[in-house]
Amino acid sequence: MSQRTTTVSRERQSRSDPEPNTLMNALIGAVVTVVTAPLLPFAAIVGGAVAGYLQERDGLKVGALSGGIAAIPAFFVAWLVVGFLFLGVDPMLGIGGLLAMMIFVFVLGYLVLAGALGGLLGVYVRKEL
């Protein structure tokens, strides 16, 4: 019986799981957010949940990072939308750039907070399953 116990403990030591790659999991969550954004109203929560599920812990951090990465394409979309809205307006006004930055800050806050919430939910689901 003693020999079996030591064998099992040696197997557990040799099978130690590698640390999860936070940046890769956040990037996967950001891709899920960007791809599902046209289809789902709360895509940032889904992307953060995927990142948190893959991470297995630190869901708040990986989910927020996922939302921050997903904000990069959102910045370009906001800039494009504002550019079309102010097409033909005097470029010296600068109101288009200001409006684009305000939209970007709002979207960034939403994506980071929703991603963090999704990350927490993803870790919770992972632990329950």
Rank of each mutant, 00 (worst) to 15 (best):
L113F: 07
A44D: 06
V31E: 07
V46T: 12
E56S: 09
M101R: 10
A71Q: 00
E19L: 02
V112L: 06
A74K: 07
A70T: 00
A30H: 02
L108W: 04
L23K: 03
F75Y: 11
I103G: 10
R12Y: 07
G63I: 00
Y124G: 14
P20H: 12
E11F: 14
A100Q: 07
E11R: 12
L65C: 05
F76K: 10
G47C: 06
V62F: 01
P18C: 09
V32A: 08
F106S: 12
F76N: 06
P38R: 06
G83N: 07
L99A: 15
L98E: 07
M92Q: 11
A30G: 14
L113C: 04
R12H: 09
L121T: 05
G109E: 02
R57P: 03
L80A: 14
M1A: 13
E56A: 09
L129E: 08
R57A: 12
G63V: 00
E128V: 10
G68Y: 01
L80F: 01
V107Q: 11
L54R: 11
A51G: 04
R10M: 08
L80R: 08
I69V: 14
R126N: 15
G29C: 13
A100K: 06
A64I: 07
F76V: 04
S66A: 05
L54M: 15
A37I: 10
A78G: 04
A74I: 04
S16V: 13
I72Q: 05
Y53K: 03
V107G: 07
V50H: 00
P91R: 06
V107A: 11
F42L: 10
F84L: 09
N25W: 06
G119V: 02
Y110M: 14
R15C: 09
G48W: 02
M92E: 13
M92F: 13
Y53L: 12
V123G: 02
T22L: 15
V107D: 09
A116L: 01
R10Y: 09
R126Q: 15
V107F: 03
L23T: 13
Q3S: 14
I103V: 05
V77H: 02
L27A: 14
Q13G: 10
F42I: 11
G83I: 02
R15Y: 11
P73K: 12
D17T: 14
V50Y: 00
L39H: 06
F86P: 01
E56Y: 08
A51T: 00
E11K: 08
P41Y: 03
L27S: 15
K61D: 11
V34P: 02
P38G: 11
G52P: 09
G48Q: 01
M1V: 15
G96W: 03
V35Y: 00
F86G: 00
I72N: 01
P91N: 02
P41D: 11
F104D: 06
R126C: 07
K127L: 07
G97L: 13
T5G: 14
E56I: 04
I72Y: 02
G115F: 02
A37N: 05
I103F: 15
V50W: 00
F84I: 04
V46L: 14
G109P: 07
L117M: 08
S9W: 15
S2W: 05
N21C: 10
S14F: 12
V82I: 11
L120H: 04
G96F: 03
L108P: 08
M102V: 15
L98F: 14
K127S: 10
R126H: 13
L111M: 09
I103S: 13
L65S: 02
S66K: 06
P38C: 12
